[in-house]
Design a protein around this nucleic acid. Structure first.
Lengths: 205, 205
DNA sequence: TAGATTGTTAATCGATTAACAATC
DNA sequence: TAGATTGTTAATCGATTAACAATC
């Protein structure tokens, strides 16, 4: 299994390559990618080698084929269905946000909330009461969930999702939760992000 | 300057320590912290040593004094004022979210938007038109901004903030922007987070 | 004292970079 | 061919862990 940093770079490569494509570029050298991303060309070539992306000494790498291979590695050829639990401001923002996802492969298909006023089964992305979650997850074979409930409900919500055998959780609550063998949990903590940013700005050399 | 990972751990230590405090704990051993966080006790002790946190061979470390020192390192004793540029769903969610920040030291004090219907100078967190940004930043000596505009406006918005000498930007647009010597930029890309999560779930050993 | 933990140094591990032969 | 880039190995760098003397 590849490191987190390497996978993150894969996404960054793809962003850069799309931009190059939009400028009409067809091929690119590892050295140019390295400059643009602030890493060494060795690392670019090694990353590519790890995922079987090959170039030629003549013209470097074909942008199209790098992108294709990255998408393949990231599983963009199958669609992953995701639900959002907690349809407050953040949950709603994420629903709207997700429509802007440029790539295929990620689709938020439903929201769940305990508040009946949030229900809106006919909307773009339907919102269901939380007690229908079990049936929905089973019927639609859901593997991924975004948690955006208030902090008071965070622990219980994540517990429910674990019981439902959800395999991947993106957690927007301020409760920091560790992954288990069955469930990979990724915590997005805005307050931590801000605190880190403040530290680095205030401690620049 | 300490590494990003070390600073991130500082936040994690603090979360854990608050929880221990709420259970009535007063002291703690590096070994217990290590177990709870899934790292080695050597690393805990080294982190503490780096920031001048000392313990005793008798009872370990005093929780209160660890927290105090971490807050000092993170500059929590001064308040950092932050503005949000772009008051759509995400911006509004962040505004609401920020009220829940448990710690002192981070305060979102205003929003800016080009859409006049978003204006609401008397609200909890006032929203002003974007053309008042310059005056506000100067008057209030703003160093930090959160960018939550639509992607089409992302590049221009960040350019403006750089011109205003904003030193730290938390960027919620899908445009990935690199830091410069003058402006530290931290990109929060939900789509990337999801893509990574999906990769790791689908490629577990 | 005996036992256990801190503080710190040395060893290990993993990731990144430099270097260069092979290749076009 | 001459020049430049890839693919890959060796070297470097930094972060984490193991080990242990000092200390309570």
């Amino acid at each position: 299994m590849e490191s987190k940093d390497r996978i993150k770079r894969l996404l960054d490569y793809k962003n850069l390559l799309y931009q190059l494509q939009s400028l009409g570029f067809v091929k690119v050298f590892s050295d140019n990618i390295a400059d643009a991303m602030g890493i060494s060309s060795s690392l670019v070539r090694k990353d590519f080698a790890v995922f079987g992306i090959v170039g030629s000494q003549k013209g470097g790498y074909e942008i199209e084929s790098i992108i294709d291979r990255i998408n393949q590695v990231l599983g963009k050829n199958e669609i992953e269905k995701i639900i959002i639990v907690g349809v407050g401001r953040i949950g709603q923002a994420l629903m709207q946000y997700s429509k802007g996802f440029r790539e295929e492969g990620i689709r938020i298909i439903a929201g769940f909330d305990s508040d009946p006023t949030k229900m809106n089964g006919g909307a773009d992305i339907p919102v269901f009461p939380i007690n229908e979650l079990h049936e929905f997850v089973v019927e639609n074979k859901i593997k991924f969930a975004i948690v955006a409930v208030p902090e008071t409900a965070a622990r219980a919500t994540i517990e429910i999702l674990k019981q439902e055998k959800i395999q991947g959780i993106l957690n927007f609550t301020s409760l920091s939760v560790k992954s288990t063998d069955e469930t990979t949990i990724s915590n997005v903590d805005i307050e931590h992000e801000l605190a880190q940013l403040i530290y680095f700005v205030n401690n620049r050399k």
